[in-house]
Design a protein around this nucleic acid. Structure first.
Lengths: 116, 116
DNA sequence: TTCGATGTTCGTGAAACGTCGAACAAGCTA
DNA sequence: TAGCTTGTTCGACGTTTCACGAACATCGAA
C-alpha cells in the first residue's frame, strides 16, 4: 500500500469529476459520504468485489472528489466538500440533489453497525 | 437518416448526463449551445471528423441534453434547458459555470459566419 | 434525372472501463 | 515468529468508448 495521490485544488478537472460521477456505484459512494463524515473503508457496503470497490474509490480520489487517509492498515475516506465548493461552486450541492431525485446509487450503503 | 430518439423528461438519467459531460468535445458543444439558440449542424466546428461529431451529438441526444430537429437534409440542435431544469434543478447552470472556470471544451466553436 | 451537400451508419482498431479472483504488502495481534 | 486483517495491485476478460474513412440515404438544386 503506497501513499495515494490526491490532485491539488486547481488540478481538479471538470471532465474527470463528471466521469467519476457517471457510474452508479461511485455515485452511491458519494451519497454515503455526503454528510461530510469520515467513513472507514470497511464501513462501506457495495455489491462488488473488494478489488472493484478499491478501483472505484481510486477513481473518486484521482478525480479529486474524495480524500483517503491511512491509519495503520485501515483507510478512511471523506468527501472533499470544501475543495469542491472552492473549485466549482455549487456543483456538489446540485449534484447531490440530483442523485436524490434520480435515486441513483442506492445500492451502496453502510455496513450494519455504522452510526447513521 | 432515421428519426432520432430523445429520452422523455423522466427518463433522463443522472449517470448518463454525467457520462455525456465527461468528454471535452461534448462539453464544448454544450457550451456553444448554452445561450439557448438553435444551431445548425454545419455551424458547429470541432476538431474531429464528421462521423465523430455525429457520434458525440448522438451521445448528447441520448443522454437527454440536446434535441435534434431535422429539416430537409439539415439538422438543428438545441440544448434542452427547460427539460434539464425541470429534471435536475440548477444542474445545468452550475455545470455551465464550472465549464467556464475550467475552460474546458474551448476547442469547440462556431464556424466563421455564424452570428454570435 | 443527375449532381452535390448533408448527416448517419458501418467496419475497424486502439484505448479505456468495470469486473473478478489471486497474489501481494503492510501492519496489528497472539 | 506466525498468523490474521486490510486494502492495493496484477493479470485476465468482455464491454464500451472514441476515432477515422468509406459507404450510404436523403433531400435540394441544376
Amino acid at each position: 500500500m503506497q501513499k495515494a495521490h490526491h490532485p491539488e485544488l486547481g488540478e481538479i478537472a471538470l471532465t474527470e469529476v463528471m466521469g467519476a460521477l457517471s457510474d452508479p456505484i461511485r455515485v452511491g459512494l458519494v451519497r454515503v459520504l455526503a454528510d461530510g463524515r469520515e467513513r472507514g473503508w470497511g464501513q462501506l457496503r457495495a455489491p462488488v468485489a473488494k478489488s472493484t470497490l478499491s478501483h472505484h474509490l481510486r477513481v473518486l480520489r484521482d478525480a479529486g472528489l474524495t480524500r483517503t487517509r491511512q491509519e495503520g492498515t485501515r483507510c478512511y475516506v471523506t468527501l472533499r466538500r470544501d475543495d469542491l465548493q472552492a473549485r466549482f461552486p455549487g456543483l456538489l450541492q446540485v449534484v447531490l440533489s440530483a442523485m436524490e431525485i434520480d435515486d441513483v446509487g442506492s445500492q451502496v450503503g453502510l455496513r450494519d453497525g455504522a452510526d447513521p
